[in-house]
Simulated assay, not measured.
Amino acid sequence: MSPGGERGYGDASSRGDEGGYGDGGYGGTGQTRTRLPDRPGDVYGGARRGRGGSSRSTVTVVAVVVLLIAAIAFANRGGGGGGDGSGSASNGSRSGDRAKSAPTTATGKRPVDTKTSGIPTGYAHDQQGAQSAATNYAVAMGGTGMFNADTRHVIVDTVYTEAAAGKLRNAMDDAYSPSFLDRLGLKPDGSPPEGSTFVSRTVPVGSKVKEYDNDSATVAVWYMGLIGMAGPGSTDPVTTSWSTWTFDLRWTDGDWKIVSDSQKDGPTPVPGDDKAAASDEISKAVEEYGGFTYAR
């Protein structure tokens, strides 16, 4: 989750062209802003949560000052037609072609065979590989690991190009300051208080290739996010948000890496009438249900 000015999450961000973020702080290649929504003092209860702006809970990856988002994991939605849309394009794809929109249906291919620091890596050099990379990277950067300096550095170094990671590292350390973590109810090392569970997950719902040109790709990931604190007396309960995260990827050293990324709100479904779970139920669910490795 990226720290920002106000207490809230999620806002549209601009992506750069080369090596990272920021018109000012990242080599003049784009700028991202993160807005942290004000949280009313709502607590866990049986009533359905409203969808007002004050309850938005996505922490966005920012360029110039922040990087990350909020989120939990859900399931990919199958689509009709079974078309791959990507056509399993590989190194010979025509330069500048815009990929056709296609449902995120299963192809039966394994997304990766290896991991680096627990993050799936080693993707295929084609459109399907780019989609799998973007989706799994969104999950990695939407987790609680981003709130601890050591694990955050590992994540950033793993998913970004070397140039982009170098420009982001210090700015993100400044953004995830002790005062920002304190506003989230976290200790200086990013851990929650005793008896509480901090929740931050991304759950991809679908992905699509917007542009593909052999060694570069632009992939959008539509996801639902979860963020908040589950525990006794929490005034910042776990809430959901919907956003689209767009990644500019480059084929570097035998794998897809992020050059820059941006986010925007929605599309957001109409909320249902589900009864909100109690704090201890959320804590238990987070501990019992792990995440997935996503594939196109």
Rank of each mutant, 00 (worst) to 15 (best):
Y21K: 01
E162W: 05
N76D: 13
D173N: 11
G108V: 03
P192Q: 03
L36N: 10
D261A: 14
S88C: 07
W222M: 11
G25H: 08
L186D: 06
R48E: 08
G96Q: 05
D11T: 12
M172L: 13
S243R: 10
A130V: 01
V270N: 15
S57A: 14
Y223R: 06
G272A: 07
V62G: 13
Y21V: 02
A99Q: 06
G254L: 02
R35M: 02
G30A: 07
E287H: 13
G225M: 03
S13Q: 15
D174M: 02
R7L: 13
N91D: 15
T58S: 15
T135V: 09
T144K: 13
P188H: 09
T197I: 05
R98F: 01
E287M: 03
G10F: 04
T235H: 11
D23R: 11
P271Y: 04
R35Q: 08
Y223D: 07
D253R: 13
G166N: 14
R48W: 06
G10W: 01
T104Q: 11
N214L: 00
R94V: 10
M141E: 15
P103L: 05
R169T: 11
G185Q: 03
S196A: 14
R7K: 13
G81E: 10
T121H: 02
G143E: 07
G225E: 08
A220S: 14
D253V: 05
G45W: 01
S95Y: 06
G266K: 07
W251E: 05
G87Q: 05
S14Q: 10
G82T: 08
S207A: 14
A217Y: 04
A89Q: 09
M172H: 09
A134Y: 07
T34V: 11
S88N: 15
N170W: 03
A71K: 06
P3S: 11
D23C: 04
D182Q: 13
S14F: 07
W256L: 08
L68I: 07
G4D: 07
H153S: 13
A133P: 06
M1D: 07
V205H: 09
I119F: 03
G254A: 09
A149M: 01
R77K: 15
R77S: 12
I155A: 12
N136Y: 08
Q127H: 04
D189K: 10
A89P: 03
S54M: 04
G20V: 00
I282N: 00
G108Y: 01
S243P: 00
G166A: 04
